[in-house]
Amino acid sequence: MGYTTKEKSVVDFCESKTESLSNWVRQVKNKSLTAKTKRKHDLRIIAILSHSLMRAESELVMKQRERARRWAQMQADLGLCNKEEENAREQREKIDSIWKNDLSGLDSFFRELDNVKPVVN
Rank of each mutant, 00 (worst) to 15 (best):
R55Y: 08
S22C: 10
K83M: 11
L53C: 01
K31M: 01
Q64E: 14
R44P: 00
C81A: 10
Q27I: 11
T34G: 04
W71Y: 11
I45R: 04
K83L: 11
T34R: 03
M54T: 12
W24F: 13
S52A: 14
M62A: 14
L33R: 15
H41I: 15
S58Q: 15
E85Q: 06
E15F: 13
K31D: 12
Q64S: 03
W24L: 11
E15M: 09
T37G: 00
L53Y: 02
H51F: 09
H51S: 15
M54L: 15
R69Y: 06
T18M: 11
T37R: 09
R44G: 10
L33E: 11
E85H: 05
N30Y: 07
K63F: 06
W71C: 05
G79V: 03
L78Y: 04
E85M: 09
E19W: 02
I45C: 08
H51P: 03
L43Q: 12
N30F: 02
T37D: 06
E59M: 04
S50R: 13
S20H: 12
A35V: 07
A35P: 01
R70M: 08
K29V: 07
R44N: 09
E15Q: 14
L80W: 10
S32T: 07
I46S: 00
T37I: 09
A76C: 02
E57R: 08
E19T: 11
S50E: 14
K31G: 00
V25P: 02
I45K: 05
N30L: 07
M54C: 05
Q75E: 14
L60K: 04
A72D: 11
H41N: 10
R67M: 12
S16H: 07
K29M: 09
L78P: 00
L21Y: 01
G79C: 00
R67P: 00
I48C: 02
C81I: 15
L80R: 08
R65V: 04
A76H: 10
E84W: 12
K31V: 08
D77L: 07
E66V: 03
M74D: 13
K38V: 03
R39H: 06
V28D: 01
K63I: 04
R67N: 07
R26Q: 13
L43N: 12
S58C: 14
K29G: 05
E59I: 01
N23I: 08
L49Y: 13
E84C: 06
L80N: 01
R44A: 15
L80M: 11
V28G: 00
L53R: 07
A68H: 08
S32P: 01
D42M: 04
H41M: 13
L60Y: 04
K31R: 06
H51Q: 13
I48K: 10
W24C: 03
A35R: 02
H41S: 02
N30K: 04
T34A: 14
T34C: 02
T34I: 10
E19Y: 09
S32C: 11
I48N: 11
K40I: 15
T18F: 01
N82A: 00
A35F: 00
I46G: 02
D77Q: 08
S16W: 07
V61Y: 10
A35G: 00
T37F: 07
R69N: 05
A47N: 09
Q64Y: 03
L60E: 01
L80Y: 12
K36C: 04
N23K: 13
L49D: 04
Q27W: 01
C81Y: 08
A47Y: 09
